[in-house]
């Protein structure tokens, strides 16, 4: 035992500069991420900001019981999952595909302009995007519906249709963030060794094969990490977007955990209830991340940890 630990100490001592390098970052995480973690405890309390943590009453699992016994729980769960799965299927790969396409272009004015343009929507807030969506899609004012009507067809309810609401959200997210998402993948592609391309080209590989056999494996690591981290957010749906697009006609498919927390918890000053729901979401996320990381390791990937 002592031998092992001495060995460990020697190794730590050897890497002292490495630890020093990470020290500011570790300090940051201790102070700003772990020091406030006590806040999670209030999900077992009846917390009020004025009374504070120490004097608030303990209620055990009351908030969790209330949450799980809510008749709408299943609806919230289903909507959250559906929106997230659609996002995983279509929105997650979109920036990868886009980055592959961009990567094929030789550096030039066209590539630079396309890149700059597709980043732009990221800077528009959801309020503006919701407004623009309305200008385009509404039945009263929308450009698209005006066009449809002028062609002699009846107007289409894009914004108040339960059946297409999830698709609408996914398309909006793609429009807003797919371009911005390419940044990280382009950066990863820039690190792929050009000699690999040369070698494959000599072997007679076309652009598709190059993308499949060289580029994608080169950025596999980054994709895996992003995917695993994304799974951790499986219970989160971009609150602002859903909140702004939701209306009475679609709320049975639009209501998700985040909008519920806002309406029932935050706006009513129920800090403990909101935190309890947050804790539930985190635990689900944690389980998924652990499972995903295990699978990734089994497939020979580096994984997240």
């Amino acid at each position: 035992m002592t031998k092992v630990s001495r060995n460990t100490w020697t190794r730590i001592l050897q890497d002292r500069y490495l630890y020093l390098l990470g020290l500011p970052g570790m300090l940051y995480f201790v102070v700003f991420k772990y020091a406030p973690m006590w806040g999670i405890v209030i999900s077992f309390q009846d917390y009020s900001p004025y009374t504070g943590l120490w004097k608030s009453e303990w209620v055990g699992f009351e908030h969790f019981v209330r949450f799980f016994s809510n008749p709408d729980f299943f609806m919230l769960f289903r909507n959250t999952m559906a929106i997230n799965l659609l996002n995983l299927l279509f929105f997650f790969p979109a920036p990868i595909l886009l980055a592959l396409l961009l990567n094929e272009l030789r550096t030039g004015l066209f590539k630079k302009s396309v890149q700059s343009i597709i980043y732009l929507p990221h800077f528009l807030s959801w309020v503006i995007i919701a407004g623009i969506s309305f200008q385009m899609l509404s039945q009263t004012e929308g450009v698209v519906n005006k066009l449809i009507v002028s062609l002699g067809y009846p107007s289409v309810e894009f914004l108040t249709n339960e059946n297409t609401f999830w698709v609408l959200l996914t398309l909006q997210s793609m429009w807003k963030e797919a371009g911005w998402g390419t940044i990280i993948f382009l950066a990863a592609m820039a690190s792929v060794d050009p000699q690999l391309y040369e070698a494959s080209k000599i072997d007679g590989a076309g652009p598709f094969r190059l993308a499949w056999h060289v580029t994608l494996p080169g950025i596999r690591n980054v994709i895996t990490i992003l995917l695993i981290l994304r799974l951790g957010d499986i219970m989160d749906v971009g609150f602002e977007q859903v909140y702004l697009m939701m209306n009475g006609a679609v709320s049975s498919v639009a209501e998700v955990f985040d909008t519920y927390v806002f309406r029932v918890g935050i706006s009513q000053g129920q800090f403990s209830y909101s935190t309890a729901i947050g804790l539930f979401k985190s635990v689900v996320g944690l389980i998924l991340v652990i499972l995903a990381n295990k699978s990734a390791k089994r497939l020979g990937e580096e994984g997240v940890y």
Partner: peptide, 16 residues
């Protein structure tokens, strides 16, 4: 009344 009145934000209706 507007056919998509639930989606019509107050401020948009006001502008109309």
């Amino acid at each position: 009344i507007p056919q998509d009145f639930p989606a019509l934000k107050f401020i948009t209706a006001r502008d109309m």
